[in-house]
Amino acid sequence: MNLSRSAFIAGAVATALVSLSPSAAAAKRPPQEKCFGISLAGHNDCAAGPGTSCAGTSKRDYQGNAWTLVPKGTCLTMPSKTSPTGHGQLSEFKEVRR
């Protein structure tokens, strides 16, 4: 099907183009905070990571266990469908051992 011969199509294209202001096509961009830039730092290194040490033989040594900790970030103020208040809740959960 060659659409270029259809008057209907030509009209639709013309309407679509008119409705586009020069900047309308560009999606609104949020300001780029430094820490949210795309991994410009690069990921691959040949050095030991900062804080590397001889410590860390058990999960306790690594900032706790995700099965027992509770999130403490901004998620506590984000709306959530699953909680009656509309906000995330610090639900008590039992530690699950697999």
Binding site: D45, C46, A47, A48, P50, T52, S53, C54
Partner: peptide
């Protein structure tokens, strides 16, 4: 850094 025996260990940190 110190190892488990208290001996000094050098780490290639590049930091």
């Amino acid at each position: 850094i110190q190892d488990a025996e208290g001996q000094t260990l050098l780490i290639d940190s590049h930091g």
